[in-house]
């Protein structure tokens, strides 16, 4: 019994320690996003500051310091290098080491405002949402149709086609990127959203695979009965198979959205005009131009991450199921 309790205690200790390590970057991001610039850069030897603070001020707006156990107001720096303080209505000159400035919690929301202006947040958000939703719709439509063909219709050549689906999953995207760029350029598509959206309407191998596996599990008798009743193939697809496949369709939609939201390579290669930048690309451009604006940069990173985390908590079950499903059966 004692050894079991010890084991539980030990595993919790390790898990809590690991959890802290995993959370720390998030906390650091959030904390930095709310810090004033003067608090972001640490002085040598200073430990990381987790709570954003600001100077405490008195009614006249003078910073407060602690001097020999008393609260004092800082007036000005003297030429001698000392600082003039006001303690109990008396003025004293003190060395830097003799007093310590008083801090209070201070959240610098201005970072968010600044970040929103720099990357033109409403516009980037609109672009991201437009691309994400278009791709989700395209993927759902095309992949469910193709998966239906590979699982619910007997036709010569379908197994060959399905092997092609599996084979294309193995090709690294970079191998196809250059000709795709040339192709889209010749079509006059570069600099528009088309290269990001149109391929989704031609099916994505991974989701075709996922949906096919799911469709296979739906009893074929249902289709047979519907055929006898004179239902067309498209009718069976739309009225029987799709309604029964909501979990798999939800997983597909969720993963597609997630991938598009964070996608960087495609927008980088295919978009040219900053008016079309998606959030991910806009954040990278922001970072490349203002490398040390860590407050606004962390604010923007938080803003891009937050919807994804919310989405995760809203759809947690679909999520974990989807991962294990695709992971184990893949």
């Amino acid at each position: 019994m004692a050894s079991k309790r010890l084991k539980t205690f030990a595993s919790h200790t390790v898990l809590i320690a690991a959890s802290l390590l995993f959370i720390a970057p998030f906390a650091w991001m959030l904390s930095t996003s709310l810090k004033h610039e003067s608090r972001i850069f640490a002085k040598p030897g200073e430990p990381p500051q987790w709570i954003p603070t600001t100077d405490r001020l008195d009614e006249q707006g003078r910073p407060l310091v602690t001097y020999r156990g008393k609260t004092a107001a800082k007036l000005q720096r003297m030429e001698s290098g000392k600082t003039l303080l006001e303690v109990d209505a008396q003025r004293v000159e003190a060395d830097e080491e003799e007093f310590e400035s008083q801090q209070r919690l201070g959240l610098h929301w201005q970072n968010y405002v600044e970040a929103f202006q720099i990357i033109n947040f409403p516009r980037s958000l609109k672009n991201s949402l437009f691309v994400c939703f278009s791709v989700v719709i395209g993927t759902l439509m095309s992949c469910s149709l193709v998966a239906y063909s590979f699982s619910r219709i007997e036709w010569p050549g379908r197994n060959f086609c399905f092997v092609l689906v599996l084979a294309t999953m193995m090709i690294p995207y970079q191998v196809m990127l250059i000709p795709l760029f040339v192709l889209y350029k010749n079509l006059g598509w570069t600099g528009s959203f088309k290269p990001l959206i149109m391929p989704a309407f031609l099916g994505t191998p991974f989701y075709i695979f996922l949906l096919r596996q799911f469709f296979m599990g739906i009893p074929q008798d249902l289709s047979a009965a519907a055929r006898i009743d004179g239902c067309s193939e498209f009718g069976i697809y739309a009225r029987i198979v799709l309604p029964l496949s909501k979990p798999a369709l939800a997983t597909t939609a969720l993963f597609t959205f997630l991938f598009e939201w964070g996608d960087f390579l495609n927008p980088l290669v295919f978009l040219q005009d900053d008016r079309q930048y998606t959030l991910a690309l806009a954040l990278q451009q922001f970072q490349s131009q203002h490398e040390s604006l860590w407050g606004p940069l962390m604010a923007m990173s938080t803003v891009i991450t937050l919807p994804i985390i919310l989405l995760f908590f809203l759809t947690q079950k679909t999520f974990i199921q989807g991962i294990t499903l695709t992971g184990l059966k893949g």
């Binding site: 959890s19 995993f22 964070g262 960087f264 959030l279 962390m298 923007m300």
Partner: peptide, 22 residues
């Protein structure tokens, strides 16, 4: 715990790269 360990994997890569730079 599972949620905590899993969350970083869904953070957009650009955001996590900027974050880790810091």
């Amino acid at each position: 715990y599972r949620t905590i360990f899993f969350l970083p994997t869904i953070v957009p890569v650009v955001a996590s790269a900027v974050l880790w730079m810091w």
